[in-house]
């Protein structure tokens, strides 16, 4: 356990070091001004490093093993077709219903715990003067990831080509962009990128590869990838939908107040 902590601490330091060098280098040589509240900033950095270290070790100890185990169990033919039944050559996509439910649930719950999404939600709440709620945004993004990942698992099972899903998704995003409140659009585009980091990616990758290995006729190298793309596309839509919905509710409230 202790060894784990030290190892992770070192690798986190290695990740943070180039960033710190760039920040402090530019501050000293280009901006040439002392940093305001230097003590606080340094303590803040130390907290971030300690926090990430504990977070990663904890995930590695508690969450990832059981998550991978469950992905394996869920996708194994024994679980899906019963112990004795033979695996058919052509699978019916409905047989995998537990996989879709699990994909939805794990996509939602890991996104709620994603630290970079918290950072963006805090900032958006600040900047919008409270108009965009921290929880509203987080739940909207989490729903988007959940829908995206369960559709992605359906794609792996059915073997449909990924391009059609992604391209249809893009078309939806473009249409929504013209109708959504202007204020939300950049934030919605951003939310695609922030959803997939420390917590979601390892679990989702395990699910995708496990599924592509066990469904007959799928190639893990071609079909195992792509879940992350789904998880970054759908939040864009769900965040815009969230803004459209709250705008609509506001309008209705105003109408009924008159």
């Amino acid at each position: 356990m202790l060894l784990n902590l030290i190892e992770t601490l070192l690798s986190t330091l290695k990740d943070v070091l180039p960033i710190a060098l760039i920040l402090f280098g530019f501050q000293i040589f280009v901006i040439r001004r002392p940093i305001a509240n230097l003590k606080n900033v340094v303590i803040g950095f130390v907290y971030v490093i300690i926090g990430l270290t504990f977070f990663l070790v904890g995930l590695e100890k508690a969450l990832f093993p059981i998550g991978r185990l469950m992905a394996d169990q869920l996708t194994s033919p024994d679980f899906i077709f019963g112990d004795s039944a033979a695996v058919p050559d052509v699978v019916n996509w409905m047989d995998y219903y537990w996989v879709y439910i699990f994909a939805f649930a794990i996509g939602f719950s890991t996104t709620i715990a994603e630290p970079s999404l918290m950072a963006v939600a805090i900032k958006a709440n600040d900047v919008s003067g409270g108009a965009i709620g921290v929880w509203g945004l987080r739940i909207a993004v989490a729903l988007g990831v959940a829908i995206g990942i369960s559709l992605g698992t359906y794609r792996i099972v059915s073997g449909l080509s990924m391009h059609y899903f992604i391209i249809t998704g893009y078309i939806f995003v473009v249409i929504q962009t013209f109708y959504a409140p202007k204020m939300i659009v950049p934030l919605a585009y951003d939310s695609g990128g922030v959803t997939t980091s420390t917590v979601t990616v390892p679990l989702v990758a395990a699910l995708g590869l496990g599924l592509a290995e066990s469904v007959p006729g799928r190639n893990p190298l071609l079909d195992g990838f792509g879940l992350i793309a789904f998880a970054s596309l759908f939040p864009v839509m769900s965040v815009m939908a969230y803004a459209q919905l709250s705008e609509y509710m506001n309008k209705r409230e105003k109408k009924s107040a008159k």
């Binding site: 907290y47 904890g58 100890k61 715990a113």
Partner: peptide, 19 residues
């Protein structure tokens, strides 16, 4: 560990990274 880590991270975020 995860709970502790998340707590520290959010603290550090508002103290160091954002400013």
């Amino acid at each position: 560990f995860v709970v502790l880590g998340l707590t520290f991270f959010i603290y550090g975020l508002e103290m160091g990274l954002f400013p």
